[in-house]
Amino acid sequence: MRTRRARPGDLESVGEVTVAAYAEFAGGNTAGYVRHLRDAATRDREAELWVATPDDTEEILGTVTITPPGSPWREVSRDGEGEFRMLAVSPQARGTGVGATLVDLVVERFRTDGATAVVMSTLAAMQSAQRIYRRAGFVRDPDRDWSPAPGIDLVTYRLDLGATP
């Protein structure tokens, strides 16, 4: 498996993978949220969109949005911290290490940039994703939990980049 920045020709597939990955969690949400998930072009323009592909094809197995300082996609990070959003793995690729590979990419990116920590929020119901984050060394940061809309509760995780997982 390899990771790379998304290319213009990837954006439609990235949007579809993101929608498919979040489908079981977006059930009662509005069509607006599905449009938000599908809009990979805006994420790529306003942040950094990365993908995981097999070594031998360009199939999009998963994606993550890295939000550098100044990106409007940042939600819970503080000065000196990295943040990522919308980590999504194709349902057909779950359990193959795609999520862990993308988390490793994010952590290494921010470590190289000199960040003190990496933070992210996830739906409380996304237990499989939370297991990946915990295995990578992330710990809950309940002081930053928040709700962007009624009935949508997000929990926050933080990885101190001075710590070893």
Rank of each mutant, 00 (worst) to 15 (best):
M1R: 12
R2V: 09
R2K: 15
T3P: 03
R4H: 10
R4Y: 07
R7P: 04
L11G: 00
L11K: 00
E12D: 13
E16F: 00
V17C: 02
V17P: 00
T18H: 01
T18M: 04
A21M: 06
A23T: 10
A23M: 05
A26C: 05
G28L: 07
A31Q: 08
G32D: 15
Y33A: 02
R35D: 14
R35G: 08
L37R: 01
L37K: 01
R38A: 13
D39W: 03
D39Y: 04
A40S: 07
A40E: 01
T42Y: 09
R43P: 02
R43E: 05
R45G: 09
E46T: 10
E46H: 13
E46Y: 08
A47W: 07
E48L: 13
W50S: 02
W50F: 11
W50I: 04
P54S: 09
D55I: 04
D56H: 12
T57G: 07
I60T: 01
L61F: 03
V64Q: 00
P68W: 12
G70Y: 14
G70R: 15
G70N: 14
V76T: 14
R78S: 07
D79I: 06
D79W: 06
D79K: 08
G80T: 07
E81L: 04
G82V: 03
G82P: 02
E83T: 05
R85M: 05
R85V: 01
A88Y: 00
V89P: 01
V89G: 02
V89L: 05
P91L: 10
P91R: 14
R94Q: 15
T96W: 10
G97A: 07
A100T: 15
A100R: 13
V106P: 01
V106T: 08
R109Q: 10
F110Y: 15
D113Q: 12
D113L: 11
G114C: 10
G114N: 10
G114M: 08
A117M: 12
V118Q: 04
V119R: 02
M120D: 01
S121H: 06
T122P: 02
A124M: 14
A125Q: 15
A125N: 14
M126F: 12
Q127K: 15
I132K: 04
Y133R: 04
R135W: 06
G137S: 14
G137A: 12
F138D: 01
F138I: 04
F138Y: 10
R140D: 07
R140W: 06
D141M: 07
P142H: 12
R144L: 14
W146S: 12
S147W: 09
S147R: 15
P148G: 12
P148A: 11
A149Y: 13
P150M: 04
P150Y: 06
D153M: 11
L154E: 15
L154V: 08
V155Y: 11
V155W: 12
T156V: 15
R158C: 08
R158E: 05
L161N: 11
G162E: 15
A163I: 09
A163V: 11
A163W: 11
P165W: 14
